[in-house]
């Protein structure tokens, strides 16, 4: 960990002003990912701006009847929030599938969006990594890649986004509220994270000085028919090999609307519009789900150790959809 200076701010203006005064400043809130990475010299800010005193700490109704999650509300407080539990149980379930109780008490909603990959090579400064050191090469392609991506990869990077929460947020169609030097703006979460392409160093589309202020959930919460399924190497406190957020609205046995998002398989939560289309207006049945699963994984590419994820993801999709449709119980 390198030397850095520290300042605590209580307004966004002050935060942005602090940003301007340093070479490589970073915001810090929960710190669970940033400090971890600073200790292994992957992140090396010269200045930390503590934004925990800014008032982004509310969960409140939005004008259109949705719910606004303050960026600084902790993951735990979000997951256990009564409104979230009642109206967006998919989100609660996804958050609680991630990390540990202690980490969820620290990590914030904004920080969860900003989580960086768990790729072994990204973490190990002894090895080349395009995400950490653009142009140095990708060690994971041709290296050990069991936990890495099978969808949306590039020749430069096969990292995955490690979040559970974000998978549910994409399924729910959340929007992200951002403030920054150029004022406020709101973007759909699907436009927040990005694929690696030839700039794997960029995890998302934020600009310099941007701060996430809150996350908005739309009215539709899929509270009746949802599932979050996380498949991992141990029962808890492990990152997903594959996770699935499935959300349906049903009319009888007919699927009116479907959301299907995968975690642990790509550089961002992987939403498959094609698979969703294949589910919509169909009967909620195993054969429909199997077709959708096959479509969702079209174009998936294995890199050896992680090739199993293609089959695993298909099976996990079918399972999650069965659970969402009420064909079987959710664990």
């Amino acid at each position: 960990m390198n030397k850095f200076t520290y300042a605590s701010v209580s307004t966004t203006d002050a935060a942005i002003a602090e940003m301007d005064e340093h070479d490589s400043p970073k915001f810090i809130a929960g710190g669970t990912n940033l400090l971890d990475l600073m200790k292994v010299n992957v992140e090396n800010p010269d200045h930390l701006i503590d934004i925990t005193q800014i008032a982004f700490n509310q969960i409140e109704a939005t004008a259109d009847g949705g719910l606004r999650l303050g960026a600084l509300v902790t993951n735990a407080d979000t997951a256990w929030n009564e409104e979230v539990e009642k109206r967006y149980p998919l989100l609660s379930k996804a958050i609680l599938a991630g990390a540990s109780p202690q980490l969820r008490n620290m990590a914030t909603n904004g920080g969860n969006l900003m989580q960086r990959t768990r790729c072994y090579y990204f973490y190990d400064t002894a090895t080349p990594c395009n995400k950490r050191e653009p142009g140095s090469g990708c060690s994971a392609i041709g290296g050990y890649n069991r936990i890495l991506a099978i969808l949306g990869t590039s020749e430069h990077c096969i990292a995955t986004h490690p979040s559970d929460m974000c998978v549910a947020l994409v399924a729910l169609g959340a929007t992200i509220n951002i403030t920054g030097i150029n004022g406020d703006r709101t973007i759909p979460i699907t436009e927040f994270h990005r694929l690696p392409g030839d700039r794997p160093d960029l995890d998302n589309t934020l600009q310099a000085g941007d701060i996430v202020t809150s996350i908005d959930l739309p009215v539709q919460g899929f509270e009746k028919n949802y599932a979050y399924l996380k498949v991992r190497d141990r029962a808890s406190y492990a990152f997903a090999l594959v996770s699935v957020a499935a959300a349906l609205t049903l009319e009888g046995n007919q699927i009116k609307e479907a959301r299907l998002v995968l975690g642990g398989v790509a550089h961002k939560p992987w939403r498959s519009a094609e698979a969703e289309a294949a589910l919509t207006h169909q009967e909620a049945s195993v054969s429909t789900f199997e077709k959708a699963a096959a479509i969702a994984l079209e174009g998936a590419k294995g890199y050896g150790d992680n090739t199993f994820k293609i089959e695993l993801a298909k099976r996990a999709i079918v399972r999650a959809l069965k659970q969402a449709a009420g064909l079987e119980e959710q664990a």
């Binding site: 060690s139 041709g142 050990y144 141990r234």
Partner: peptide, 18 residues
């Protein structure tokens, strides 16, 4: 887990060494 190219153990932490 060993990366054969680097001769280096890769999951050298308690998040990935389960």
């Amino acid at each position: 887990v060993m990366d054969d190219n680097f001769g280096r153990f890769m999951n050298t932490n308690l998040a990935e060494y389960h």
